[in-house]
Design a binder for these strands. Structure first.
Lengths: 211, 211
DNA sequence: TAGATTGTTAATCGATTAACAATC
DNA sequence: TAGATTGTTAATCGATTAACAATC
């Protein structure tokens, strides 16, 4: 079993996530088949791109009847999901952190934010959106106990690098970073920064440039 | 004056925004020059990419002394900023909307969220993070009055498409969308979706795959 | 069958990186 | 000067799209 496992690109993984969410929606509405050109619209792509993406998860379409939605969901989930439920940690329980707790509440069956961490003693042991807030000192224990490998970082810019390094030291394997700071990592840790400021400045720029 | 204006790519615009933020930081620390290889680190790029980006804004480096930070900030701002302060509208004052109001408060001198809108009468006229909340009916007036061309959409997934279409109809030129829904637009309106769910699912995926 | 769609390879496109002369 | 950096073109890389035989 040569460790080949054709690396799926970041772009494709993102789209698979978007497809799946949409497919679940369609399923709920009672639809049971889709064509690639229908899926392509929700990611502003082409039908060819969708078929290519679906090939990677183990294609199973049928010419002239398209793809079976429930099968597609199952196959995409096989790629995206771990066998067991994924436990996520939230670091930083400020305004944004609390909003994220709300945002990622419920309706997700393969991952969940299970614990929040903050440096402010006033927050310790408070329950926010159903999750308990712990002190940063308890992070290592919780990582071990709950087998946490992914963390959401919602701390101020000033402390982002320090906290990220701390997470990496404690064995976290992926960080979704909301702080407006680039996180450097030599290690094999995956870092995704959602930079809301640059996204807004980009939108402002193109509000003028788009015709 | 042929309307050529070498279209700067989305990727470059994003990086320019990140460079600028970092440069302002350096400036505050008393540094007054940078090399391209220093800037490259904060976007995980190469020095060549930075020099290319800076070329587009009207290059002005100096071999062996690098770039003058204050000049760079000025030139990048000439590209990114409008001459007048940009007024932004926030649509949806739920948990996330409120967090965004906090996040985008202060310290930005060329744009500002000036008004928030919601469908919940309980929120009308309340002041949140210094901005007043209005009913959706007041949106067209405010757009005219405050010359708003960019909006942040922080409404539930179910109403995202409807509200986006409403914004477009009312003349908004760019939307920063936080709802987990793809927004279709035939028109020349710029839409940037920050999909927090697919970002998290991607992080979870790569937490397993990175080595 | 005729028409449309899939699976997949080849062609294209755009963005990143390498390379290097010119410069300080 | 010697060494390092810039500005810019050419080469590379990766991702998207076009194309089309096979299929239903």
């Amino acid at each position: 079993m040569t460790r080949k496992e054709n690396r799926i690109s970041e772009k494709t993984i993102e789209r698979l996530s978007v497809y799946r969410r949409y497919l679940k929606d369609l399923n709920k509405k009672g639809k049971d088949r889709v064509y690639s050109h229908e899926l392509s619209q929700i990611v502003s792509g082409t039908a060819a791109q969708v078929r290519r993406d679906l090939m990677e998860v183990g294609c199973n379409g049928c010419s002239s009847k398209g793809y079976e939605i429930s099968l597609l969901i199952k196959e995409i989930s096989k790629v995206l999901d771990c066998s067991k439920k994924e436990n996520i940690a939230l670091i930083g329980v400020g305004n944004l952190g609390r909003a994220l707790l709300g945002y990622f509440s419920g309706a997700r069956d393969n991952y969940d934010i299970v614990a929040a961490f903050d440096n402010d003693p006033a927050k310790y042991n408070r329950i926010i959106c159903g999750r308990r807030c712990y002190s940063m000192e308890q992070l290592p224990n919780m990582i071990d106990e709950l087998k946490i490998s992914t963390a959401i970082l919602a701390v101020p810019a000033e402390s982002a690098e320090k906290e990220a390094q701390n997470l990496i030291d404690k064995g976290i394997k992926a960080i979704l970073n909301f702080a407006p700071r680039h996180i450097t990592t030599g290690s094999g840790v995956f870092i995704e920064t959602l930079d809301m400021t640059s996204a807004l400045e980009k939108a402002i720029y193109f509000s003028r440039k788009n015709t």
